[in-house]
């Protein structure tokens, strides 16, 4: 192994959703600063397998910061100490030799633990299924350039659409609120002409589903925005609130 960092890891181990978990301590040696955080976990797992122990289960897939599957709460912060970065893009050069690193799963009623650091985020899928779309069947569309969209609107919609659905916002929020996630989708579609016909219905259904899933209430601490690996802005939450009020006051 190429590196020279030695670290102490305290990792949450939990057999399944029904069992109780606890923090276990592991020592990893010869870690290279060029490794990603997940590659450091690969090294640890390889060791555990060789020793005949069970490796640590954690979610990950693309390892380039876009699929939103990785999800570790590292030293008290989702996706670790760097801003605008997912765990898979966090590199060990962000840590120092001798550090102790505590790694926990996302914690929320709506995100039950499956095993160790893996959690079930299907609540997000159900929220999207409740209204996070434009009802357009394949083949319905007219020419893409039929409706010009002001560049600023398109850019703002894109910024909201950059959400990767990782759930760091929920993990960071002291109330485990999903407002940033929901508002990003609501905003994206509210900003585009294609989203207008269902705009008010959408925000009501999505907020309704969000409440049903057992997420907490937003208290505007701003932790979600600060920890979001894609920099989704709090102004989306305000936009959603605005639309929600308009929907409640306006609809029949």
């Amino acid at each position: 192994m190429s590196g020279n960092m030695n670290l102490t890891l305290k990792v949450w181990r939990q057999k399944n959703k029904d069992s109780k978990g606890l923090l276990e301590t592991y020592n990893v040696k010869n870690i290279s600063p060029d490794m990603s955080f997940l590659e450091m976990f690969d090294v640890l797992n390889e060791e555990l397998i060789t020793k005949g122990e069970e490796p640590i289960a954690f979610d990950h897939d693309c390892r380039e910061g876009i699929c939103g599957m990785c999800s570790m709460y590292i030293n008290g912060r989702p996706h670790g100490p760097k801003r605008g970065v997912t765990t898979c893009q966090l590199h060990m050069r962000s840590f120092k030799d001798g550090d102790t690193i505590v790694v926990e799963p996302w914690r929320a009623t709506a995100f039950p633990v499956i095993k160790d650091l893996s959690v079930d985020r299907s609540a997000f899928d159900r929220i999207i299924a409740s209204g996070g779309f434009v009802s357009v069947n394949t083949g319905n569309a007219r020419d893409a350039n039929n409706i010009p969209i002001p560049k600023d609107d398109a850019d703002t919609a894109f910024d909201a659409a950059a959400c990767i659905g990782c759930g760091a916002c929920v993990a960071a929020c002291k109330n485990a609120s999903a407002m940033l996630f929901v508002s990003a989708k609501v905003s994206q579609l509210a900003l585009l002409p294609q989203g207008q016909p269902e705009r008010y219905m959408r925000v009501q259904s999505m907020v309704g589903q969000m409440d049903e899933e057992g997420f907490g209430n937003c208290t505007n601490t701003g932790a979600c925005e600060a920890e979001c690996p894609k920099g989704i802005s709090l102004s989306n939450i305000a936009r959603m609130n605005r639309d929600y009020i308009a929907a409640g006051l306006g609809s029949e």
Binding site: F133, V134, V136, T138, G139, N140, A141, R142, D143, A144, N145, P148, I149, P150, K151, A154, D155, A157, F158, A161, Q188, L189, L192, Q194, G195
Partner: peptide, 22 residues
Amino acid sequence: GNIIDQCVAQGVPFAREYGGLL
């Protein structure tokens, strides 16, 4: 071409020029 039409209709925020076109 139909793919682009379909995606725009779904609210895919493609990059646009100042005139509002793709």
